[in-house]
Amino acid sequence: MGDLLARLLLKNATALIFAGVVLLFYAQAPHFLSVENFANIVKQSSFIGISAVGISFVLLTRGIDLSVGSVMYLGPLIAGFAMRDLGIGVAGGLVTAAIAGIAMGALNALFIVRFNIAPFIVTLATLFFFRGAGTWMTSSRQFDFDRSLLDFGLSSVAGVPVPVVFFVVFVVLAHIVLSRTTFGRQIYAVGADPEVARKAGVRVEFVKARVYMISSGCAAVAGFVLIAQIGRLDVAFGEGREFDVIAAAVLGGVSLFGGIGSALGAAVGALLIQTVKTGLVFTTVNLYLQPIVLAGVIFAAVLIDSLRVIRLRATRKRSIRPLTR
């Protein structure tokens, strides 16, 4: 019985934390529970959310992608140059950003899959490389976009702001890919056991290569959508955001140990982080304490992830004699 309860708690940890956080803020500041406040939270979390959905693909295969923060910067920057110099317009810019992101992911994948270097090392190197490339292209100056980008960014579709539209579309697409395609299910198989997956006829390298392209592609689009809100791109854009993105995915139940989690979960994780950030503004918590509170929430999520994996390992341990139940 206690066992079952522990399982339920671990499985629904994100929902429980979310409910707890919302109740806590509500008790502190009742006007926290308002429609426009939540609409705002969704809009503000779309940036981290889109990228968190992308990185989930990588985390599910037991990988890691530290370069997303730099891709958020370099992808839109390349798009900006193309828009300015080639006059391809906002739609063209969006496509360029996505393609640039996918290309950066392909570079990561090349080193990870082809040369078999640890993803942590490869993406740490490209974190510096991508940002360095952008700094070199701009000579470290701010890049100003055409007014048309801002018009696009601040527009809405049927009353729904553009960033939210993108967020929703990416979550739905990712969810379908992960749960309803061969590629998606093979991602879970690789995350559970790459060797067994290979033996079962899964092309493990191919699966791994694609997840890094997806992660970078999502990061570049996320960056582009946020840039469309501000109209300019400075050198520090996206710096350190890889940790927000990873934290959001893990908070949403995507395991750093691979094989567990969903796109929906990652999106909820991003919402949760933004809820905490916004909620802290509503309450009278000391401004300088806020990062510590956020750290506490993230730590709780990672702890729960570890507990879950330890439990899972225990159930998979080979037994010599039948367990009498």
């Binding site: 309803r180 395609t181 299910r185 067994v196 006829g201 899964v202």
Partner: peptide, 30 residues
């Protein structure tokens, strides 16, 4: 084998088809 080659995080049905799923409209025909 003694150590079974199954994926703990997939369903029974998915484990059978992991190297190639039947498709309908481009998606797995669940």
């Amino acid at each position: 084998h003694q150590e079974l080659n199954l994926f703990f995080n997939l369903t029974v049905a998915e484990n059978l088809f992991v190297d190639g799923f039947p498709k309908r409209f481009g998606l797995i025909d669940r």
